[in-house]
Simulated assay, not measured.
Amino acid sequence: MVIGATGQIGRVAVGALARDGWEVTAVSRGGGRDADWPDGVRVARADREDGAALAAVVGDGCEVLVDMVAFSAAHARQLTSLAGRVGSAVVISSVAVYEDGAGRTFDTQDEPDGFPHYPVPVTEQQRTIRPGDTSYSTRKAALERELLAAGDRLPTTLLRAGAVHGPHCRTPRELYFVKRNLDGRRRRVLAFGGRSRFHPASVHTLAELIRLAAARPGSRVLNAVDPEAPTVAEIAAEIDAVMGVETDTVLVDGPPPAPGVGDTPWSVPADVVCDMSAAERELGYRPVVRYAQTLPETVAWIEGRLAGRDWREAYPKMFHAYGDLFDYAAEDAWLGA
Rank of each mutant, 00 (worst) to 15 (best):
V90A: 01
A70L: 01
V41M: 09
Y328A: 07
P131N: 08
D20W: 09
V69Q: 11
A13E: 00
V66I: 05
Y176T: 04
A237D: 15
A237Y: 13
A74L: 15
R104Y: 10
V164F: 04
S277C: 13
R211Y: 08
A321G: 13
S196D: 05
G10R: 06
R211V: 02
V58R: 05
C274L: 11
A270S: 12
S219F: 08
P121K: 01
T80W: 10
A142G: 02
P167N: 04
D332P: 11
E238F: 14
V252Y: 05
W301Y: 12
E63P: 14
G254M: 09
E63D: 15
F198G: 13
T123N: 08
G308A: 03
R170F: 14
R187K: 10
A207L: 04
T231P: 00
A224Y: 03
S88F: 02
I129R: 02
E238L: 15
Q293P: 11
M1T: 00
G162D: 03
V120N: 05
T157L: 01
S81A: 08
D275G: 01
G244Q: 05
E280W: 14
L206I: 10
P116R: 10
Y322W: 11
V97R: 00
S72N: 05
P131V: 04
P116K: 02
Q109H: 12
V2L: 00
A258F: 07
F192R: 07
T298Y: 08
L17T: 02
R139Q: 15
L54Y: 14
P287W: 05
T156C: 00
D100M: 06
R153M: 13
G84E: 04
I129Q: 06
R11N: 02
S277Y: 13
G15W: 12
A76C: 09
V27S: 04
D240E: 11
T156N: 04
G101F: 14
D60F: 08
P217Y: 02
Q293E: 15
P287A: 05
G61S: 03
M1V: 06
P131H: 09
A314F: 02
D248T: 10
A207G: 09
H165M: 10
V189S: 02
A329W: 04
P131G: 00
S81K: 10
L147F: 02
V43T: 09
A224T: 00
T134A: 15
R180F: 01
A26I: 08
A74D: 12
G336E: 13
V272F: 15
D133A: 15
A13K: 02
L148Y: 07
E23F: 13
V268C: 14
R290S: 12
D110Y: 11
G40V: 12
V242D: 12
I210V: 04
S137M: 14
G194H: 07
S202D: 08
G103L: 05
V272R: 12
V252K: 10
G336L: 12
D332H: 10
V242I: 01
A26C: 07
E111D: 13
R104G: 10
T171C: 13
S88I: 00
P167Q: 06
E144P: 05
K140T: 05
